[in-house]
Amino acid sequence: MTGMLEVRNLEKIYTKSRLDRTPAFRLSADFRIDTPGVVGMMGPNGSGKTTLFELITGSNVPTSGEVLVAGRNIHKIRTDQRDRLAIHYHQSYQVRHFRSFKPNMLMEPARSDYPLLHLFDEPQFNTQDGYIGFMLDFFRKLRAEGRLVFLCVHPNERFHLEIVQEVCESFIFVEKGTVTPFADYQTLLAHEPAQAYLGDLLTERAA
């Protein structure tokens, strides 16, 4: 059966330099998601969240392994059409360039007008302006239309946890390059590194 997203034995290794090939950072992921939904992604800064988004949307080349979106290898799709399958909404307004050694004419067309996967990278949430409500409704709308939404949040205020609890049904925790999926918020909280990461915010909640 074809999943919406299959991340197969994916690995990205950054070495210390071109000469010194000692790995400086290694990201590994292996998971699949078969149904539409809103997946919360959390983890400390520098743990590999944005790199994982880049690998899934095909703007970063894996060292090994593959990413299949609706059964299609994202890295074999024309670079100018990859965002028709999976789109990365960047933090602030940075633009990333797609690199490929193969010319687009030799690659596969996306055959889609609107992306199946929507990856939101730490969107700005501000309780003052009310936009949060519209953003959460939009994530739900995408899910209802059969799409898969990733919401990367780096919670540093309590309402960030309220947001993920309200809108995300499953979670992915990334720490030091290790990617672990969780079926729901409770099992995420049972995971010790996640507890340590959310530490203060959770105790505040108990208080």
Binding site: T127, Q128, D129, G130, L136
Partner: peptide, 14 residues
């Protein structure tokens, strides 16, 4: 209708 959203109600727009 937009104002009825609970996050809007919590904001300064509420």
């Amino acid at each position: 209708a937009l104002r009825a959203n609970k996050w809007v109600a919590r904001s300064t727009l509420g």
